[in-house]
Amino acid sequence: MQINITEAAIEKINDRTVGRKGFLKLKYDTDGCGCAVNGVITLWFVPVLDQDDLAIETNDRPVYVEKAKTVFLDDEMKIDFSQTANCFQLKSPQQILNGRMSLMIKEKTD
């Protein structure tokens, strides 16, 4: 699996995570979607990783994905930022996986 992060997306990620320690993660979110195969891929910034997260090297920083959810991702993807829509986008040569992604900042809870 290969992920490229555009310069526009890198800039927005850095702006929104400045001063925070954590990891960029593509999360397959099924909350409110019915069942485990009905979900949407979202972009999270998390303080800790889950045991089953896999690191995918990119042109900027590793992006983590849940091992069991890699089936929902394409082999070649790009994380972009749309100035017009003011949101992140996850695309592949075959499809738009999520055209309106927010960057969810998850805080550490003790």
Score class of each variant (00 low, 15 high):
Ile3Glu: 03
Asn98Tyr: 02
Val71Leu: 07
Gly99Val: 03
Leu24Thr: 12
Arg61Pro: 05
Val48Gln: 14
Met104Phe: 03
Val65Lys: 12
Pro47His: 07
Leu103Pro: 02
Asn98Pro: 09
Gly99Gln: 06
Ile41Tyr: 10
Asp80Phe: 04
Asn59Ser: 07
Arg61Gln: 13
Lys25Arg: 13
Asp53Gly: 15
Leu73Thr: 02
Asp29Asn: 14
Glu57Val: 06
Glu66Ala: 15
Asp80Cys: 01
Lys91Asn: 08
Lys21Gly: 06
Lys106Glu: 12
Ile105Arg: 08
Glu107Gln: 13
Leu26Trp: 02
Pro93Gln: 00
Gln94Phe: 06
Glu76Ala: 09
Thr84Lys: 15
Arg100Met: 01
Ile10Asn: 11
Val37Met: 04
Lys106Ala: 05
Thr6Asp: 01
Glu76Pro: 06
Asp31Arg: 13
Val40Arg: 10
Ala68Pro: 04
Lys21Val: 01
Met104Leu: 08
Phe45Tyr: 12
Gly32Pro: 08
Leu43His: 09
Asn86Asp: 13
Gln83Ser: 10
Asp74Ser: 05
Lys12Val: 03
Leu49Asn: 14
Leu49Tyr: 11
Glu11Ala: 08
Glu11Cys: 09
Val37Asn: 09
Met1Gln: 12
Thr84Asn: 09
Tyr28Lys: 15
Phe72Met: 05
Ile13Glu: 04
Asp53Pro: 15
Lys12His: 11
Leu54Lys: 14
Ile3Tyr: 00
Thr109Val: 15
Cys33Tyr: 13
Leu49Val: 09
Gln94Arg: 12
Pro47Asp: 09
Ile105Lys: 11
Gln94Tyr: 02
Gln2Ser: 15
Lys91Ile: 07
Lys27Gln: 13
Cys35Pro: 00
Ile5Lys: 03
Ile3Asp: 05
Val48Asp: 15
Cys35Gln: 06
Asn86Phe: 09
Thr109His: 14
Gly32Leu: 12
Ile105Met: 11
Ala55Leu: 10
Pro47Ser: 07
Ile41Val: 15
Asn98Ile: 02
Leu103Gly: 05
Ile10Pro: 02
Leu97Ile: 11
Gln95His: 01
Leu90Tyr: 01
Tyr28Gly: 09
Asp50Gly: 15
Ile56Thr: 12
Gly39Trp: 06
Ile96Phe: 00
Thr17Lys: 13
Ser92Tyr: 05
Asp75Tyr: 08
Cys87Asp: 00
Asp29Gly: 02
Ile96Gln: 03
Lys69Ile: 00
Lys27Val: 08
Ile79Trp: 06
Pro93Ile: 00
Asp110Lys: 11
Val65Arg: 05
Met77Tyr: 01
Cys87His: 02
Leu43Asp: 07
Phe45Ser: 01
Met1Cys: 10
Leu103Gln: 02
Asp52Gln: 14
Asn14Met: 08
Gly22Gln: 08
Ala9Glu: 04
Met77Val: 02
Lys106Tyr: 04
Thr17Arg: 07
Ile13Gln: 06
Val46Pro: 15
Lys106Trp: 00
Asp15His: 10
Lys67Ser: 11
Ala55Lys: 15
Leu97Asp: 03
Leu97Glu: 06
Arg20Cys: 07
Phe81Leu: 03
Leu24Phe: 04
Gln83Val: 08
Pro62Phe: 03
Leu49Trp: 08
Leu103Lys: 01
Asn59Cys: 08
Asp80Ala: 10
Phe45Trp: 14
Ala55Asp: 11
Ile96Ala: 00
Asp52Glu: 13
Asp80Thr: 05
Gly99Phe: 00
Gly32Val: 10
Leu24Lys: 01
Asn14Thr: 10
Asn98Thr: 01
Lys78Phe: 01
Ile96Lys: 03
Val65Ile: 14
Thr109Met: 10
Glu7His: 07
Val18Arg: 08
